[in-house]
Write a protein that binds this DNA or RNA. Structure first.
Lengths: 348, 348
DNA sequence: GTGAAAGCGCTAACAA
DNA sequence: TTGTTAGCGCTTTCAC
């Protein structure tokens, strides 16, 4: 009876009991009301909401999670939050997640397997309902930890043979074909490719698609001109340097991502090489900055919004409807060429 | 006795009880061992860790939080994750937090008060142990929700008169003075300032410090040349356009942040105005990209690492040692000028 | 429709 | 030192 008057006089954060007391209902009714159960009468529901507002009550997520087994938390693991592609991706993912009542736990691995391991561990401890692994191809065995514990995961460009795993396939081919054809039409035949780290599946795929696109366009691939870079600004500068040190030089460079391309732009500028007059450059991603480089970067757009949507949808299905027989387990995200100012006919 | 052989045969995720059973100790001992209590004998501790490893046990954070009242979660609210300044900041903050056993919840408000409100609400529901509000000056009354509920917060550039609130003061003056003096020494007298949104405290401070630095250098401030922009690339382009439309034009522009400066660089290029020959440009932040613009951007560095460290330290103190009488409630982060290629003597 | 009561997995107070 | 036990705040049977 004297429950309210325990030690602390008044200001304890309100809990479900205080709401129930104020609304003169049981805590079960409060719980049902909050969770939108249809079994609550309008009369009581109104009283409950009124009490909730009056007390400024917020349900305790941890208690909810503990009993329901669902945290409404999704993890998102990216490769490098410092590459603007990823913040834009995270932003999209977060917006969608929050709109659906989920929270996100972000982690950036910087391609470090140790970081990945602790990060998987932390997500497991937090009982995430799913994890989007958007590292683009460094999928490590540690991810089994997740599937073993029945945590849904979605991977970019990598299929895991597990009922809990979904995949987002990236169709680079369309964009890369368009890029090569665009250059070919401008009259380029000497095209180099600054690849990403070969340990990344995505980088390998991009490189492979470049080779195939070249073949498709009837253009030769010079092995010296296919150089492994690291998807950073600095890497782009270095890659350009390597290219310049060669006896024969390309008239156009396609880069595995925009950061590399921006590095190339800078390096070319330092050498006094005019883009696009003396050299055409194409990136991949279409980060916001691509519009603000000098000249503006022609690039292959990979939509962060599409990617985020696919990742969220994959996790949501697995989390909310795990035994749906016709659940979509593969998603496709396409790419398109965006022509701006960094490409032109060679030597024009 | 037959506790282990309940419904599901084997693969339930291990809990503290399974560990206790395997190690033949009580669950209290397991808990103590995990939490590093000194009261556990080596003998038992060893057995417990062994069992933990064998079962691949991970403690359930939600249960821990529920009973201990501490979530080991810090929220971090930034203004716009799409501005590279913030990802770099988040990265630093996360690294420090994880190293100290904390997890972070990130939110980007995009200067939208509604987003801020829901985001505070979500953090409250998740029972964060503290929130770093790094929106740089849009501090809204909604933050009272946090202090009212005794959640420590740390703000950039804004003092809240609450025992739970700390402040990070940013010394822009040093950097801005250096920038103005640098320009003055090069011979500039016509210096414009592209300010940030006036609703941001940080933007106002930067503007004020610019005015004072000009006065200090004996240079006049032309009001037409102090223009409110919005800290975006696009805003920089627009600001430059406004400046160009004026009858009298400055020989140098200091921008309230790097994004604005990069926008100016682009706009100047489009107009055929040579930087730094015909126009000097200075940014503020020193984001990674600043080294990769054409020309490289002279800018006022604001260290993300310092900022993150201060924010984390403020929260940690409040969370772990709330009634320490001589707790540090104010932190200072300084700025320095980094001279690169976007500044030179006027008309040289 | 509504309420009483049994836990979810853990920590901490108390006993031994 | 170690174990027993009472909850943390909530959802969810199960009765009514």
């Amino acid at each position: 009876m004297a429950r309210k008057s325990t030690r602390k006089p008044a200001t304890k954060t309100p809990d479900i009991r205080s709401v129930a007391a104020l609304a003169k209902v049981s805590i079960a009714t409060v719980s049902r009301t909050i969770n939108g159960s249809p079994l609550v009468s309008d009369r009581l529901s109104k009283r409950v909401w009124q009490a909730i507002r009056q007390l400024n009550y917020l349900p305790n997520t941890h208690a909810r999670t503990l009993v329901s087994g669902r945290s409404r938390l999704f993890g998102i693991i990216v490769e490098n939050i410092t590459n603007p592609f990823f913040p834009e991706l995270i932003q999209s993912f977060e917006t969608i997640a929050v709109a659906h009542g989920y929270e996100i736990l972000v982690s950036s691995t910087n391609s470090d397997a140790t970081v990945l391991t602790t990060c998987v561990r932390r997500m497991l401890e937090r009982k995430v309902d799913g994890v989007a692994v958007l590292t683009f191809g460094e999928e490590e065995p540690v991810l089994d930890q997740l599937t073993h514990r029945n945590v849904p995961i979605v991977l970019a460009e990598f299929k895991l043979e597990d009922p809990k795993a979904s995949t987002i396939l990236l169709d680079y081919r369309t964009g890369i074909n368009a890029a090569v054809n665009h250059l070919a039409e401008l009259g380029h035949r000497q095209i180099a490719f600054l690849a990403g780290p070969r340990k990344l599946h995505s980088a390998m795929t991009r490189e492979r698609d470049f080779r195939e696109a070249m073949k498709g366009a009837g253009l030769p691939v010079r092995e010296q001109w296919v150089i492994e870079c690291d998807h950073t600004l600095r890497g782009g500068v270095a890659g350009y340097g390597l290219l310049q040190s060669l006896p024969a030089r390309p008239t156009a460079i396609i880069c595995s991502n925009d950061m590399t391309a921006i590095g190339v732009l800078r390096a070319a500028y330092l050498e006094g090489v005019q883009v696009p007059r003396s050299l055409s450059v194409i990136g991949l991603d279409d980060i916001d900055f691509a519009e603000y480089t000098l000249p503006q970067l022609t690039t292959i757009r990979l939509s962060r919004a599409d990617l985020a949507r696919a990742a969220f949808e994959a996790l949501r299905q697995q989390a909310e409807d795990p035994r749906n027989p016709n659940m979509q387990r593969e998603f496709l995200v396409s790419t398109t060429l965006v022509v701006r100012g960094s490409t032109a006919a060679p030597g024009c």
